[in-house]
């Protein structure tokens, strides 16, 4: 795997939509995986494999907000962008309050989505680096070095 390529997980139960979007993002140099439920998203993203998760709000079983909470509980640095056809101001605010980076309404322009994905990648790198620095500082403090 090319380490520099942006890695994205698309989570949406609209099969045609998600496959077409994946193909277009892959054509723009991203590494893209897809799945259709919140549970699959939790399984797939377990290894910290993704720079961003693009998540639908309404899916069979676990909904998008619940999936977001579980994803962030496991990986606080993970960046989640909502992309939903059920956009209301209330749900958008709730998603951002729960830790989503952005809430986009379908149909979203691909260049807008790409901008947010790149923003997600940068933000994740900053957060991971900060966590590593904090961990090193903690070790140094505990060892009294």
């Amino acid at each position: 795997m090319d380490e520099d390529r942006t890695r994205v997980l698309l989570v949406d139960d609209e099969k045609d939509f998600v496959e077409l979007l994946a193909e277009r993002l892959a054509g723009r140099g991203l590494t893209v995986d897809t799945c259709s439920t919140g549970n699959e998203a939790l399984e797939r993203s377990g290894g910290g494999n993704y720079d961003a998760v693009v998540l639908d709000l309404e899916m069979p079983g676990m909904d998008g907000i619940e999936t977001l909470k579980k994803l962030l509980a496991e990986q606080p640095e993970l960046q989640v962008i909502f992309l939903s056809g059920r956009g209301t101001l209330k749900t958008g605010i709730e998603a951002v309050k729960e830790g989503a980076l952005e809430f986009l309404e379908k149909p979203a322009d691909i260049s807008t989505l790409l901008t947010h994905i790149e923003e997600a990648k940068t933000r994740r790198i900053v957060l991971v680096e900060k966590r590593m620095q904090d961990e090193i500082a903690d070790v140094l403090r505990r060892k009294g070095w």
């Binding site: 193909e23 277009r24 309404e58 056809g85 059920r86 691909i110």
Partner: peptide
């Protein structure tokens, strides 16, 4: 109507992706 408008939004979003892929 709220539920159906969500379905229609998904239909139109998919057609939008088809259009984008043809453009690509």
């Amino acid at each position: 109507t709220a539920s159906v408008s969500h379905d229609l939004s998904n239909v139109l979003s998919t057609i939008d992706q088809v259009s984008g892929l043809i453009e690509d």
